[in-house]
Design a protein around this nucleic acid. Structure first.
Lengths: 196, 196
DNA sequence: AACAAGTGAAACAAGTATGTCACAGTTGAC
DNA sequence: GTCAACTGTGACATACTTGTTTCACTTGTT
């Protein structure tokens, strides 16, 4: 009784729509996590029906979004060479990469499904390596991970004029934030200040 | 043309209902910030109509809740003697008090109206005093306040079995969390470890 | 005891969000 | 160019939430 799945080709058109919907959803939901599908569709420049055609339900859209964010985190962990690079360097690089994603981390974390076990494992490994290298004294990598994620938000949407970011030279804005985060996290976890 | 406000006595009955509704709202909204008034009414053991009688609208309920939380924070700041006590002691005491409130801080902060300017000022004063006393090196009290609030969440709902909380003796559970928070915040803000 | 205040049940109205459908027109793939 | 896939418009059904009103009943206050 096997009805063959009809040979439904997916047009390049449709795939672009899917991408635009996900993009719009990320932006809109970051501001208001209860935003309607209509507002997401508007932001994507598409009709609401199209959203329903690409995603069976609101939940399906949320799931797809979580999956996408999760993939980005995993890619970031890989690019930062969390497993092999000197852990302090990896932490610095990972922060840079995550900032570059420019996604709303507050939303990403709130969307618990985006932080998959694999992502957690990667982060835990990083903080275990930081501990083993003596960069921090906090024994529990889970605690390190939580502190990192919590402070990530705060640093990320820190107003640009903040005195806290005042860098000596007319340095890079992002670089200042990354340095602040690394310094703060390491300090919070009982490390000696890795200052120059 | 001044119509006297009708001499409407407020029965003790009604005041209890109001309190129960606020209590239930705090608990329910902490889990799901978009929970319906019906679910709040159920949690309060009252009918939905009664909620509407005590609070003109959903917004009015939210406002009242924010007001209540704000008052608790202010009382906590006063009891911790943020303005006069040695700042490190005040930080420790304030953390204890806020934990005792047992309210969902994640929700309280999300409910931005609860953190009124007066509360912010109190916190900023505390971190300015910590800086002046040399307990921390972070110059910007605003940054200190943000770090404090962010880490407050993490420490507050830390699982009890966490290795991070392992205290030498069979010490107080809350005391361990308070110490961890103070240590972490001070470290994050560049203070020398106030360890024994 | 008397009266005002409070409550629950039930019904109602209005608004909004989700999800589906049919139809006509457009666009990509071969 | 042909056909299937894709899209927008408009309409529809359903469900949920907020807010109001009426009525009968209970409870606090004096």
């Amino acid at each position: 009784m096997g009805g063959d799945s009809p040979p439904r080709r997916i047009r390049a058109d449709a795939e672009r729509s899917t991408a635009r919907i996900l993009e719009a959803a990320e932006a809109v939901l970051a501001v208001d996590s209860a935003a309607s599908l209509e507002r997401i569709a508007d932001a994507a420049g598409l009709a609401r029906v199209t959203v329903h055609r690409r995603f069976a339900s609101r939940t399906a859209l949320l799931d797809a979004l979580a999956e996408q964010l999760s993939q980005r985190y995993l890619l970031g962990l890989a690019k930062a060479r969390v497993e092999t690079a000197p852990p302090l360097i990896a932490l610095h690089r990972l922060t840079e990469i995550v900032f570059d994603l420019k996604l709303s981390h507050r939303f990403a974390v709130q969307l618990s499904a985006a932080i998959t076990p694999a992502v957690l494992d990667g982060l835990d490994l990083l903080f275990a390596r930081l501990r083993d290298a003596g960069a921090i004294t906090a024994a529990d990598p889970v605690w390190g991970r939580q502190v990192f994620l919590a402070l990530l938000h705060e640093v990320h949407d820190l107003p640009v004029g903040s005195p806290t970011l005042a860098s000596p030279g007319a340095g890079d804005e992002v670089e200042a934030k990354v340095s602040l985060l690394v310094r703060t996290v390491v300090g919070a976890l009982g490390g000696s200040d890795p200052h120059s």
